[in-house]
């Protein structure tokens, strides 16, 4: 019972030597030490050890204040970090920018490929609306060529066989789709025109 009480104070004595106890605990520990010879010896040893540490504290590590500041080196490395971070930010946007550019390119190309067909079709429909028995959706686009006999332009129908190669059967109102290849309009005998 007595020993356990001492054990309880041993820890407090180790704090007492470094002034790490509050006033109440300090007074209580000192009161115990005054009545316990073993704890008095223990406290004495702890104080010796504490004095060694105190002396080591004042001795070393010395002259830290004389060291040149590390800010120069830190500052340089911080700039490198910031540059890397800037590049990383830009790289973060890169996939989005690339995707947008790709979408834009596809849109432009698709529009370019489809526009001549639509223009030709609408013009042909307008011009051939009277007198022709060709179904509206299968109207062959005309090309205007100069007439060597008089100055009136000649209207030459494009070969419908070429058109029919590309269009699905039994569809009178065929509209070109993405997979279709309108370049084939330029094939045949009028390619050079």
């Amino acid at each position: 019972m007595w020993m356990s009480k001492c054990q309880k104070y041993r820890q407090e004595l180790a704090l007492l030597v470094g002034q790490d106890l509050d006033m109440v605990a300090q007074v209580e520990a000192e009161r115990h030490v005054a009545t316990c010879p073993d704890c008095r010896v223990h406290l004495q040893s702890l104080r010796s050890g504490q004095q060694v540490l105190q002396q080591a504290r004042t001795q070393s590590p010395s002259n830290v204040a004389e060291e040149a500041s590390v800010w120069g080196g830190v500052s340089r490395q911080i700039r490198v970090l910031d540059e890397r971070a800037g590049r990383a930010n830009w790289r973060g946007w890169l996939p989005a920018v690339a995707l947008a550019a790709a979408c834009l390119t596809v849109t432009v190309i698709t529009t370019d490929m489809l526009d001549p067909l639509r223009l030709n079709s609408s013009r042909t429909v307008g011009e051939m609306s009277g007198g022709s028995n060709t179904p509206q959706g299968l109207l062959a686009p005309n090309r205007t060529v100069s007439n060597p006999v008089n100055s009136q332009p000649l209207r030459v129908p494009l070969p419908t066989s070429d058109l029919q190669l590309n269009q699905p059967e039994n569809e009178s109102n065929w509209i070109p789709r993405r997979g279709d290849r309108p370049q084939r309009f330029n094939t045949g005998p009028f390619r050079s025109l």
Binding site: Q11, L15, D20, L46, S48, V52
Partner: peptide, 17 residues
């Protein structure tokens, strides 16, 4: 921290002695 500090001081003193 206080428990470790007390233990560390005790051990330091023992080894030093």
């Amino acid at each position: 921290i206080r428990w470790r500090l007390a233990e560390a001081r005790t051990r330091f003193e023992q080894i030093w002695r």
